[in-house]
């Protein structure tokens, strides 16, 4: 009987430890924008998964490349087939730490998110300034940054050099809700 108590106590302790504060969204938005003399290209993804672990001040993002929607179907096909090679590299991911997590309040403030981003199978260190707030038990994070395509091994053939920007602007908007599991 005593042993049984011990087991229960242990499980309870574990439960308490595991009741970490996690916040998740499955409908995060990421937009990328390429501005060039010949044409502007924009694509939106509204099915981005993002999670914030408040106890560890960590966050992770998972992006399905095929969920980026373009204005022109042919652009979308070329994006997946020729540029990011979605069959080979179906996802882009990010994992990192929210550096000044304690400062997040119910009014928008700047925090730094530092971590590793993987696109097209290539991983880079990255620090992104993010506007964050915590309100009604949800964590909101949004911001934008630039990436250089050649850093991630995405080649642009010379014939379309003038159609695609070398630096792509990535914007994100996540609305994390409490996540229990």
């Amino acid at each position: 009987m005593k042993n049984l108590y011990t087991v229960f106590l242990c499980l309870f302790t574990v439960f308490v430890i595991n009741a970490q504060e996690r916040y998740l969204t499955k409908s995060g938005q990421i937009t990328f924008f390429s501005e060039s003399p010949l044409e502007n290209i924009e694509a939106k993804n509204n099915q981005v998964l993002s999670i914030v672990d408040a106890s560890k001040k960590q966050m992770a993002i998972s992006i399905l490349m095929k969920s980026f929607m373009f204005e022109k179907a042919l652009m979308q096909e070329h994006f997946n087939e020729n540029y990011v090679e979605s069959d080979k590299y179906p996802k882009a991911t990010f994992r990192g730490k929210i550096l000044n997590f304690e400062t997040i309040s119910n009014t928008e403030s700047k925090v730094q998110v530092k971590g590793k981003i993987t696109i097209h199978g290539v991983t880079k260190e990255l620090t992104v300034e993010t506007l964050a707030k915590k309100k009604d038990d949800a964590i909101y994070m949004k911001g934008s940054f630039f990436i250089t395509l050649s850093d991630f091994g995405v080649e642009i053939p010379s014939v379309v050099e003038k159609n695609i920007a070398k630096q792509i602007k990535i914007s994100f908007n996540f609305n994390h809700q409490p996540f229990k599991k």
């Binding site: 574990v14 499955k26 099915q47 999670i51 672990d53 992770a60 993002i61 998972s62 399905l64």
Partner: peptide, 21 residues
């Protein structure tokens, strides 16, 4: 038990949460 229950990697957790599309 902690070892059993913990999902340390947030990305693995996201994988598990990804709906089948």
């Amino acid at each position: 038990s902690y070892h059993l229950a913990a999902q340390d990697d947030l990305l693995d957790l996201l994988d598990a949460e990804t709906p089948e599309t």
